[in-house]
């Protein structure tokens, strides 16, 4: 049997798709495709600056083969980044979901709690970091109170040592305390996305389920979670990408160093390209897996 041709209504609707996405069709060509093609070209050569502009000496796959066979650091850095991301993302997502649920419930001081939660996004930004690098005073101010605080933390550590827990556990405890700030920072955006998602869930759904005798716990799993699952997927993608491209990421810093400090655009682009392929593969896998659990309403 011959397949029926797609209805003209469907095709007409498709045209509206082009209309709505028209800005990004232009934008992606300018902001994504053009730079990415250019850097792909760079990655197969060495850029030589000249009086006017630059010249590219093509070297084939030299930059890539150097990266994977000669360079001692790249593969190690790649594996370390992957490991860190795998550990960080699930923790961050569960934490954000928990925070968003707590902040969505009614309690006195909720406004304050929400503001506190939002602050890492502003306080740990790049301009603040730059300003603090000009600062010579804070160490002096901190040293005034250092005696007290150092003693407390040292006592705490020695108390833990006396309690006889192993060194591994010690390191784990101190590392996780050190990482709370990091965790809070990465959780800000997912928490706000999830919170906004929870706010957009129709209240009648909750009313209906409570009338049917559902407990809060059941409502959480059967109403809230499925309803915000599309946004949960974006949060996961965001966390993965943020972990791969954040300022503290060694490979991103390396691209920046190669391009702007050492002026080796060729090898910098090769690093970036190898990295992008790996990251995209991971994002693709995450997307494919997570998308099965997302309930879309169509």
């Amino acid at each position: 049997m011959r397949r029926r041709k797609t209805g003209s209504l469907e095709r007409k609707k498709g045209l509206y798709g082009y209309l709505f996405t028209a800005p990004f069709i232009v934008g992606s060509l300018l902001g994504v495709v053009y730079p990415i093609v250019l850097s792909l070209v760079y990655s197969f050569g060495n850029l030589v600056p000249q009086d006017v502009g630059y010249r590219i000496d093509f070297v084939g796959f030299q930059n890539y083969s150097d990266l994977f066979t000669v360079d001692p650091d790249f593969l190690r850095q790649l594996v370390e980044t992957l490991q860190r991301t795998l550990l960080k993302v699930p923790v961050a997502i569960v934490f954000s979901f928990f925070l968003a649920c707590v902040l969505n419930s009614e309690f006195p001081g909720r406004g304050f709690a929400r503001t506190i939660l939002f602050m890492p996004l502003i306080l740990f930004s790049k301009p603040v970091e730059i300003l603090l690098s000009k600062d010579t005073l804070s160490t002096q101010m901190a040293s005034k109170s250092a005696d007290a605080s150092v003693m407390i933390s040292e006592r705490f550590v020695s108390a833990l040592e006396e309690a006889g827990i192993g060194e591994g556990l010690m390191n784990f405890l101190t590392a996780s305390v050190d990482n709370i700030g990091n965790l809070l920072y990465i959780s800000v955006i997912p928490t706000i996305i999830i919170l906004a998602g929870l706010q957009s869930v129709s209240r009648s759904l909750y009313e209906a389920s409570y009338v049917e005798g559902a407990t809060a716990w059941e409502v959480l799993w059967k109403i809230s979670l499925p309803m915000i699952s599309p946004l949960l997927l974006v949060s996961v993608i965001y966390c993965v990408i943020d972990s791969f491209t954040g300022v503290e990421n060694v490979i991103i810093n390396r691209v920046s160093y190669e391009c702007f400090t050492a002026f080796r655009f060729g090898s910098g682009s090769a690093v970036a390209w190898s990295y992008i392929v790996v990251v995209l593969a991971i994002v693709g896998i995450v997307f494919a897996i997570a998308n099965r659990f997302v309930s879309y309403d169509n």
Binding site: G31, P35, S39, V255, C259, G268, A272, Y275, L280, F287
Partner: peptide
């Protein structure tokens, strides 16, 4: 997704 994954440094020079 690609636009998000790109290191910002790669965008700087072409743009």
């Amino acid at each position: 997704v690609l636009g998000l994954v790109l290191p910002p440094d790669l965008l700087q020079i072409p743009l």
